[in-house]
Design a binder for these strands. Structure first.
Length: 876
RNA sequence: AGGCCCUUAGCUCAGUUGGCUAGAGCGCCACCUUGACACGGUGGAGGUCAGCGGUUCGAGCCCGCUAGGGCCUACCA
C-alpha cells in the first residue's frame, strides 16, 4: 500500500530523500526569463569556516520561507547562495591547523600560506552548505558564489579603482585600532568596548624648574614612556601660569611641554592635568596634532615595547612593562595612589585581544559622500527597514559616520590593487602595470595589505550577479527584493551594501530589509560554548526534524531576542505529528478516484463544509498578508491554529458521521471526502514554506498535478469561499457542545453520560439548521436527543450561548456547593459587565461618537447578557 | 552622555491605525486509552496589562513623569 503513511511521524525517514528529489528536479533554479515577475534575495554569506549554528538556522529558515512562498506564488524566484572568505576568521583557523603541526604562517611565507588556505577551503569550505541543505534551504546552488572567486575579485578591484579615482579612497598615516595578536589594523566597529575592573594610578610629574609636582591620573602607566607633553585647561586658574613651562617625565627623564588644550582636558575630571601620549591614544593623538607635539612610538605592532621606551623596557610585553613602570615609580616615590576603577576597554571582537591605538599608514574610504544618498534612500522609503525602529539607529550611525579603515595586514583576502614603483609613485589599477606611468620604472611591487572582508561583502548583491558585466542575471534579478539578516550587522554589512549599491548601480540593492532577533537560550542568555547552553541545529534536526525547528524559529522570529528551548521545538514536532496523523486519517478515506477528480461544487456543500472552507479561506488571507509584512510569527501561528484547532479538533470530528457513512447520503459522503481532501491539500500548500519536508511527503500521496508541492500554486483567498452564515452557525454548534461538555464535567458526570438538550430560537432558518444537524450535536456533545423549540423542564440547566437559549436535561439533579458558587460567580461576572455596558449605552456621547458597529455590538451584547443572567438564575 | 527598546497568566511572548468580554505556546489541576494521533482528547484554574497622572464617549495600545531591565553609538586622564 504505497498510499499509506506509517503510524508515527519520523522525519529522518524522508527529509534527506526529499531534498535530493528537489535538487535533482532543479526546482531551486529560476528561469532566465525577464518577462515573468521575479523575486530575488541573496544569502548573507556564512563564513567558509562556519559550522551551522542556530543563528544561521534562523536567518536561512526565514529566507527559505519567503522564497518558497514567492516561488509557489508564481514568481520567478532566485535565492542566491554563497560563502564569505572571512579574512581574519579563516586565517586564524588555518593558523591553528598549522600550529598543530608546529609551524607558523611566517615559516611558510605568504604565497604558500595562501595556497594552504585554499586547500583548506576546498576540503572543508562546503560543510556549511551541506548543513544548510539539511534545513531544507531551497537556494540555487548552481549559482553559488564565493567572495574570493574570480568574478567577485574582479568586482572588488573595479570598485576599489573607481573609488580611488573619485577621491573616495585614500591612503594616509592615521591613528587606527591595532590588534597586536592579529597584527593588523581593524575598523572602529570591530572594536567591542567592555566594562573592566581595573586600576587608576596617580603619578607625580616634577616641574623642570621648581619643586612643584603635577599629579596626573592614568589607567595605562606604560604609555607614559611615550608622553611628549602634559596638558591643562587654559582657563584653569590652578595651572594656567604653567602653560609653556616644562615638566620632567619620570623614568625617562625627558622634558615635557605643558600645553593648554580645552578640548582634551576636562577641568572637573581627576586632577585637571593630563599626560599626553600622541602615539598611543586617540584623543592624545588629536591633541598632538592641535599642539604640534612630537610622536614617540613606544609599543610595536606585536604589543611589545620599542627601543624608544628605553633599554630597560624594550622588548617587554605592554602589560609586563606596566608592572615594571609601576615598580619604578614606587621606588622613586612618584606613585601617589592606586585605586580601583571601572572603565571600558576596547577588545578585538574576533580574538579578544585588547586593542592598541597605533599610528600607521592605512587605506580608508571617505564615507560621508557615500552615506548621504544611503540616508536618503531609507528616508524616502526606497529601502524600508523592518522593524522600523531600527531606522533611528541607522540614521544615528550614518549621520555620525567616520572614514572606514579598509586595509588589513593579513594574507588571506583581496590584495589591494595598488602598486608602488621604485621611485615611490603609487599606481592604482585593476591589473598590475608593466611600467610606472609617471617615471617609466619597471620595478613595481604590489601593496601587501588586503581589504577588510566587509569590503567585498558590501558588493555582494550585485557582484554575485556578474556585475560589473551587464549579465542577464544582473538585468533580471538585480536589485533584489529583500535582505534578511540579524540586527548585529546593520552597520557592518547592510549600511555598506546600500552605500555601494547606490553608488555603483544607481539603485538600492534591495527595497526591504528585515532584521531578525538574536537567538538566546530559554533564559535569555547568549548561547556560548563556555556556558554550555548551545543548541546545535543539527542535533535538533536529528532529533525532531528540520520542519519542527523551522516552525519554531518562524514563530519566534519577531522581537529582539528569541528564547529557544527544546520544549518549544518538541511542541512543534508534536504539531508535525498531528499533521501526519490527520493526513493518515484523510488518506484512509480518500480513494484514487477522488484524487484524480479534485474540485468541489460549492453550491452543493453542506453548512459544515462551507464553514471549514470559509475558515481556511480567512487563514489563507491572513497568512499571505502576514508574510507580505515579514510577520512569520503571525503566519505560522495562524496555520498552527487553523490546522490543529479548527481542522483537526472540529472539522474532522464534525465530518466523521457523514464521512464514515453513519449519516447522510452517499453523495454527502462523497462531498465530505472531497472537502477533506481539498482542505488538506490547501493546508499543506499553505504550510509548505514553513515545513517543506512533511508537507511534500504527505502531498505526494494526494495525487497532485505538479511534480512537487514546492511548485504547486500557493493558495490565495477567494471571496466566494467566505461564508459568514456558516461561520455563525457552526460557531454556535461548537459553543453549545462546549457548554454541554462543561456542564457534564463540572457536575461530575462521566464522559459517556448522555443528556437531552433543548435549543430555542425564533428564527425558522436557525431552527431548521439545528434540526438538520441534530445528529452532529448529538455526536459532539454526547446527547440522547436534541429538541428544537420544545418545552424544557424547569429542572434543566439553562444557559444562553451565542444568542441561543439552551437547556440541558440531566438524569439526576446534582448540586454541589462548588457548582452553586460557580454559577454565582458567572452571574456576578455577567452583572458586572452588564453594569458597565449600561453606563456606556446610557452615555449620549458614546452613542454619538463611537462607530455604528461598535454601538450595535454593545447593544447586542447587552441583550445577550440580560438573557443569560435570567437563564443562569433559573439554575439556582 | 545621546539614541532605541522592553516591563501583559508560573515561564516565554503575541496583542498592527485606541472599541478587549485581554490571547497563544509551554507548564499546572481533574477526567478520558472513543476504530488518525497519549507527540492524543475533554474540561478547568491562573492577569488591578510595572506605578502615577493626562488626553478621550472609550486606553494594554496615545502623551507626560517615576521605577526596574536590555541594547546601540560615543566617551571615560
Amino acid at each position: 500500500m504505497p498510499d499509506e503513511l506509517p503510524t508515527r511521524y519520523n522525519p529522518a525517514d524522508f527529509e534527506q530523500r526529499l531534498y535530493q528529489f528537489w535538487e535533482k528536479g532543479q526546482f531551486f533554479t529560476p528561469l532566465v526569463d525577464r518577462d515573468r515577475p521575479k523575486f530575488s534575495i541573496v544569502i548573507p554569506p556564512p563564513n567558509v569556516t562556519g559550522r551551522l549554528h542556530i543563528g544561521h538556522a534562523l536567518v536561512n529558515t526565514l529566507q527559505d520561507i519567503l522564497v518558497r512562498w514567492k516561488r509557489m506564488s508564481g514568481f520567478n524566484t532566485l535565492w542566491l547562495p554563497g560563502t564569505d572568505h572571512a579574512g581574519i576568521a579563516t586565517q586564524m583557523v588555518v593558523d591553528r591547523e598549522l600550529a598543530k603541526q608546529g609551524i607558523s604562517r611566517f615559516d611558510l611565507g605568504r604565497e604558500k600560506f595562501v595556497e594552504k588556505v585554499w586547500e583548506w577551503k576546498e576540503s572543508y569550505g562546503n560543510q556549511i552548505v551541506d548543513q544548510l541543505k539539511r534545513l531544507g534551504a531551497s537556494a540555487d546552488w548552481t549559482r553559488s558564489r564565493f567572495t574570493l572567486d574570480e568574478g567577485l575579485s574582479h568586482a572588488v578591484r573595479h570598485v576599489f579603482v573607481r573609488l580611488y579615482e573619485e577621491g573616495l579612497i585614500y591612503r594616509a598615516l592615521a591613528m587606527v585600532n591595532w590588534c597586536p595578536f592579529c597584527r593588523t589594523a581593524i575598523s572602529d566597529i570591530e572594536v567591542e568596548f567592555r566594562e573592566q575592573n581595573s586600576k587608576i594610578y596617580e603619578i607625580d610629574y616634577p616641574l623642570a624648574d621648581s619643586d612643584r609636582r603635577l599629579t596626573v591620573a592614568t589607567t595605562r602607566p606604560e604609555t607614559m614612556l611615550g608622553d611628549t607633553a602634559l596638558a591643562v585647561h587654559p582657563d584653569d586658574e590652578r595651572y594656567r601660569e604653567l602653560i609653556g613651562r616644562e615638566a620632567v617625565l619620570p623614568i625617562a627623564e625627558r622634558r615635557l611641554r605643558i600645553v593648554g588644550d580645552p578640548i582634551l582636558v576636562d577641568r572637573e575630571f581627576g586632577t585637571g592635568v593630563v599626560k599626553v601620549t600622541p602615539s598611543h591614544d586617540k584623543n592624545d593623538y588629536e591633541a598632538g596634532q592641535r599642539n604640534n607635539l612630537p610622536q614617540l612610538q613606544v609599543i610595536d605592532e606585536t604589543g611589545r615595547m620599542t627601543e624608544a621606551a628605553g633599554h630597560d623596557f624594550a622588548g617587554l610585553d605592554r602589560f609586563d612593562a606596566r608592572r615594571k613602570v609601576l615598580d619604578r615609580l614606587r621606588e622613586m616615590g612618584l606613585l601617589r595612589s592606586t585605586k580601583d576603577y571601572v572603565h571600558s576597554v576596547g577588545f578585538h571582537e574576533r580574538c579578544d585581544t585588547i586593542i592598541e591605538p597605533m599610528i600607521s599608514r592605512q587605506w580608508f574610504v571617505r564615507i560621508e559622500p557615500l552615506a548621504r544618498p544611503a540616508i536618503d534612500a531609507v528616508r524616502s522609503d526606497a529601502v524600508r527597514i523592518t522593524p522600523q525602529s531600527w531606522e533611528a539607529t541607522y540614521f544615528n550611525w550614518m549621520e555620525n559616520i567616520y572614514d572606514w579603515t579598509i586595509s588589513r595586514q593579513l594574507w588571506w583576502g583581496h590584495r589591494i590593487p595598488a602598486y608602488y614603483c621604485a621611485n615611490g609613485h603609487t599606481i592604482v589599477r585593476e591589473q598590475e602595470p608593466a611600467a610606472c606611468p609617471d617615471c617609466g620604472s619597471t620595478t613595481i611591487t604590489q601593496e601587501t595589505d588586503v581589504l577588510d572582508t566587509w569590503f567585498s561583502s558590501a558588493l555582494w548583491p550585485f557582484s554575485t550577479m556578474g556585475w560589473p558585466e551587464n549579465t542577464l542575471d544582473y538585468q533580471i534579478f538585480y536589485p533584489t527584493d529583500v535582505l534578511i539578516t540579524g540586527y548585529d550587522i546593520l552597520f557592518f554589512w547592510v549600511a555598506r551594501m546600500i552605500m555601494m549599491g547606490l553608488h555603483f548601480t544607481g539603485r538600492a540593492p534591495f527595497s526591504a530589509v528585515f532584521l531578525h532577533g538574536l537567538v538566546r537560550d530559554e533564559f535569555g542568555q547568549k548561547m556560548s560554548k563556555v556556558k554550555g547552553n548551545v543548541i546545535d541545529p543539527l542535533d535538533i534536526v536529528g532529533e525532531y526534524g528540520a520542519d519542527a525547528l523551522r516552525f519554531t524559529l518562524a514563530i519566534f522570529s519577531v522581537g529582539r531576542e528569541i528564547p529557544l528551548a527544546k520544549s518549544r521545538i518538541q511542541g512543534y514536532a508534536a504539531f508535525a505529528n498531528k499533521m501526519w496523523n490527520a493526513s493518515r486519517f484523510a488518506l484512509m478515506h480518500i480513494d484514487t478516484e477522488l484524487k484524480s477528480a479534485k474540485g468541489i461544487n460549492r453550491d452543493e456543500l453542506r453548512t459544515v463544509e462551507r464553514w471549514i472552507l470559509s475558515r481556511l479561506n480567512s487563514t489563507t488571507r491572513d497568512v499571505n498578508k502576514a508574510l507580505s509584512a515579514f510577520r512569520f510569527d503571525e503566519a505560522s501561528n495562524a496555520l498552527y491554529h487553523f490546522f490543529w484547532h479548527e481542522f483537526c479538533d472540529w472539522y474532522i470530528e464534525m465530518a466523521k458521521p457523514v464521512l464514515l457513512g453513519r449519516h447522510g447520503t452517499e453523495a454527502d459522503t462523497r462531498q465530505s471526502k472531497r472537502v477533506l481532501l481539498e482542505v488538506l491539500d490547501r493546508s499543506l500548500r499553505l504550510l509548505h514554506p514553513f515545513m517543506p519536508f512533511i508537507t511534500e511527503e504527505i502531498w505526494q500521496k494526494l495525487g497532485g498535478v505538479e511534480p512537487s508541492i514546492m511548485v504547486a500554486p500557493y493558495p490565495i483567498a477567494e471571496d466566494v469561499l467566505e461564508d459568514r452564515e456558516a461561520e455563525r452557525l457552526v460557531s454556535a454548534v461548537k459553543a453549545i457542545a462546549t457548554v454541554v461538555r462543561n456542564v457534564r464535567a463540572e457536575r461530575g458526570f462521566a464522559p459517556k453520560d448522555r443528556f437531552k438538550l433543548h435549543i430555542h430560537t425564533e428564527q425558522p432558518r436557525d431552527a431548521n439548521f439545528f434540526t438538520e444537524y441534530a445528529y452532529l450535536l448529538k455526536e459532539l456533545a454526547r446527547l440522547t436527543e436534541l429538541v428544537v423549540n420544545g418545552e424544557p423542564p424547569a429542572g434543566a440547566v439553562h444557559d444562553v450561548v451565542e444568542g441561543f437559549a439552551i437547556s440541558i436535561e440531566l438524569p439526576e439533579k446534582v448540586v454541589t456547593p462548588e457548582q452553586i458558587e460557580r454559577t454565582q460567580r458567572e452571574i456576578e461576572k455577567c452583572r458586572k459587565e452588564l453594569t458597565s455596558l449600561e453606563a456606556k449605552l446610557a452615555n449620549a456621547q458614546f452613542i454619538q461618537n463611537a462607530p455604528r458597529p461598535v454601538v450595535e455590538q454593545a447593544q447586542a451584547r447587552h441583550a445577550e447578557l440580560r438573557a443569560r443572567i435570567e437563564k443562569l438564575m433559573q439554575n439556582q
